[in-house]
């Protein structure tokens, strides 16, 4: 019963919070660039509008095109339920740890890329091709960083990883964690399509990666896809925030602790979002074939994180 309530609560939290985070990032980015920017809750209104709009579906599209938003949405949400947000115990912790989390995100991406190819548009194919390529080269860095953390914790279960990180002292002082954090931060930028890798606000088709796959989507499908992108961003940020700054997270399920933990969690998220905004405003988008170099840096950082379990025993 408890698990059921926790699952529903976390799902609702993910659904409700994700657009807000996107809104915050957009708003702050605009502020840093001396623009007024959209309001923080604009993404909610966008989603509502998309949901109500009529849809145009390409005549070349097959059922894959229509199934994709649902697969993407559920798999992303499912991945989100495996990550501890405000309590150490994630609702679906037993159903899969870090590996299933990565696998579910990959499942969503697989269908997203197929959806991009399905409409016979040249831009969609280009987006799919780039998305799959970049995801592939981000994967080893992601996995290696996850392994480092998992080895430190002795488990791939995200709740266990969090418990291990909660020990005395500040985790980030451990170079293994610090380096893994740096690596995962770069991977976060890549996975959420942020600026040095992909420009979420671009209007030029040739430079698009993630957006290029969505060009043919409209109406409620677009709403689902945008929403899943927000959820994915929220989940990845929450993972980073909670593993590397575990302070304040609730270990038991009393309302007071959970409430406090929720506030701390929001604070951590906002700080991390601020970091992303800073990176986005101070950097230019990299040329596509420079991105592997950056992800190579992430991989080496993760490898060093692993090595540092030797270096600094």
């Amino acid at each position: 019963m408890m698990t059921f309530v926790a699952t529903v609560a976390q799902a609702l939290l993910l659904l409700a919070l994700a657009p807000l985070l996107t809104g915050c990032i957009r708003n702050w980015k605009a502020k840093l660039q001396n623009r007024r920017g959209p309001r923080v809750w604009q993404p909610y209104l966008d989603l509502l509008k998309f949901l109500r709009k009529d849809m145009v579906i390409s005549e070349h599209a097959s059922w894959i095109f229509s199934a994709m938003p649902y697969v993407l949405f559920t798999s992303t949400l499912l991945a989100g339920l495996m990550v501890p947000l405000v309590t150490v115990a994630a609702p679906l912790s037993l159903f899969g740890g870090a590996l299933a989390f990565v696998g579910l995100l990959a499942l969503g991406r697989f269908f997203l890329a197929l959806g991009g190819l399905d409409t016979a548009s040249a831009f969609g194919g280009m987006g799919s091709s780039r998305e799959m390529t970049l995801a592939a080269i981000a994967e080893p860095a992601l996995m290696l960083a996850v392994f480092t953390v998992a080895i430190q914790a002795g488990s791939t279960n995200l709740s266990r990883v969090l418990q291990a990180a909660q020990g005395p002292g500040w985790t980030l002082l451990n170079p293994a964690y610090a380096l893994a954090f740096a690596a995962l931060f770069i991977v976060l930028l890549a996975e959420t399509g942020r600026i040095p890798i992909d420009n979420p606000a671009t209007h030029l088709e040739l430079t698009m990666i993630h957006e290029a796959m969505l060009l043919e989507y409209s109406g409620r499908y677009l709403a689902l896809i945008e929403w899943s992108a927000s959820i994915k961003q929220l989940v990845l940020m929450a993972l980073l925030a909670n593993i590397f700054f575990p302070a304040g997270i609730a270990t038991e399920m009393t309302p007071g602790r959970v409430g406090f933990s929720l506030i701390v969690f929001l604070g951590k998220l906002l700080v991390l979002a601020g970091a992303v905004v800073l990176v986005e405003t101070t950097n230019a988008k990299l040329r596509l074939f420079r991105v592997p170099d950056l992800l190579g840096v992430a991989f080496i950082l993760a490898a060093l994180a692993l090595l540092s379990t030797f270096l600094f025993q």
Partner: peptide, 19 residues
């Protein structure tokens, strides 16, 4: 711990300089 972290930081910067 602080020293190790700082040393690791030096190493990371070195790697960043390499690219």
């Amino acid at each position: 711990q602080l020293i190790t972290l700082l040393a690791a930081g030096m190493l990371v910067i070195q790697l960043l300089m390499a690219v």
